[in-house]
């Protein structure tokens, strides 16, 4: 294994993988990368396995000192990565040598980026996943965000630098939803209100979900018997404002879900910073399926070799 020393931790850097699946009946949250599209690109570019873990970097990246040679890739938001002061654009893999210093300047656009290594990132495996669950304090690096002085173990495999043939983060302000599962509990017109105008992402946005402010959805039915909440589920709280639930959500909830963001657009949500604006559009099931198929095809496009 190669060692990676955390000189500065950045705003919120955690170890994440695809998620802690299969534990919903125990009330264990899914967790995992919020932008799984970007994570998958980072892993692929680094030559890592699909189920291995990477670092999820939020807005302000860490400063990392490479202590042994390794091969790494960055995907997701362009957050101003540099190796020894030279730009490392997102969507590319690089060879790292002992003593290299990885830094990040303020991001140009977007919110989350993923740093993957050939051979993965070591971390505590709990119930089949290395994903950090900050609320429960388990998984990843001692169940918490990285701190200065931490030393991580990452794979030490080599590789040929390459670039992704398409953007590895999806930046848009339109997000497609499918009605339900609980749309029928709302008065007619609720979906129309949800799609009637722009919402703004409030500062109350984290790995659990994003509280939005915008057109009020009138007549939300209030509490329902607790049930499973899907990824991208849009709950309407009694004030009439929506909350979009992400990977860190609790497994069940008691607010009705009016609509659910399609899987191909979860990565769009993952890149929206507090203050950004977004609009919801109702999609058809067929459109959701096509969008997902296109995303899967993109992920299989050949890499562009560098040099």
């Amino acid at each position: 294994m190669a060692r990676l020393k955390v000189v500065r931790p950045g705003m919120l850097t955690t170890i994440q993988d695809q998620g802690r699946f299969g534990q919903g009946h125990l009330g264990v949250p899914q967790q995992g990368a919020i932008d799984s599209y970007a994570l998958r690109w980072a892993l692929r570019l680094a030559g890592a396995e699909p189920l291995q873990a990477a670092l999820e970097i939020t807005l302000l990246g860490p400063t990392l000192e490479v202590q042994d040679p390794c091969f790494a890739a960055l995907a997701g938001a362009e957050i101003g990565a540099q190796v020894n002061g030279l730009p490392w654009p997102t969507g590319r893999s690089v060879r790292l040598r002992q003593g290299d210093l990885i830094t990040f300047r303020a991001p140009a656009e977007g919110l989350r980026a993923y740093l993957a290594f050939r051979g993965g990132v070591a971390g505590d495996e709990v119930l089949g996943s290395r994903a950090t669950d900050l609320k429960s304090g388990i998984g990843g690096h001692q169940g918490r965000a990285l701190r200065a002085g931490d030393v991580l173990e990452v794979g030490d495999g080599g590789g040929e630098p390459a670039a992704a043939p398409v953007a590895t983060a999806i930046m848009r302000d339109r997000v497609r939803v499918l009605p339900g599962p609980r749309d029928e509990l709302f008065p007619e017109g609720a979906l129309g209100q949800l799609t009637s105008g722009p919402y703004r992402v409030t500062p109350d946005a984290d790995r659990v979900g994003m509280r939005l402010i915008g057109p009020e959805v009138v007549g939300a039915p209030g509490d329902i018997p607790s049930e499973g909440i899907p990824l991208g589920g849009i709950e309407i709280v009694p004030s009439g404002q929506p909350i979009v639930l992400l990977q860190g959500r609790g497994s069940v909830g008691g607010y009705p879900v009016l609509a659910t963001v399609i899987s191909a657009d979860i990565p769009v949500l993952a890149q929206l910073r507090p203050g950004s604006s977004l609009r919801f559009e109702v999609a058809t099931r067929a459109a959701a399926r096509l969008a997902r198929e296109e995303m899967e095809r993109n992920l299989e496009l050949p890499l562009r070799p560098l040099n």
């Binding site: 998620g19 699946f21 299969g22 534990q23 919903g24 009946h25 899914q30 018997p225 607790s226 049930e227 499973g228 909440i229 899907p230 990824l231 497994s251 069940v252 899987s263 959701a288 399926r289 997902r292 198929e293 995303m295 899967e296």
Partner: peptide
């Protein structure tokens, strides 16, 4: 492809890999 099976009071939510 099934990721999670979450029973609630009255229902079971099944989440799966749509890809």
């Amino acid at each position: 492809g099934v990721r999670s099976i979450t029973p609630g009071y009255l229902s079971v939510l099944v989440e799966y890999d749509g890809g």
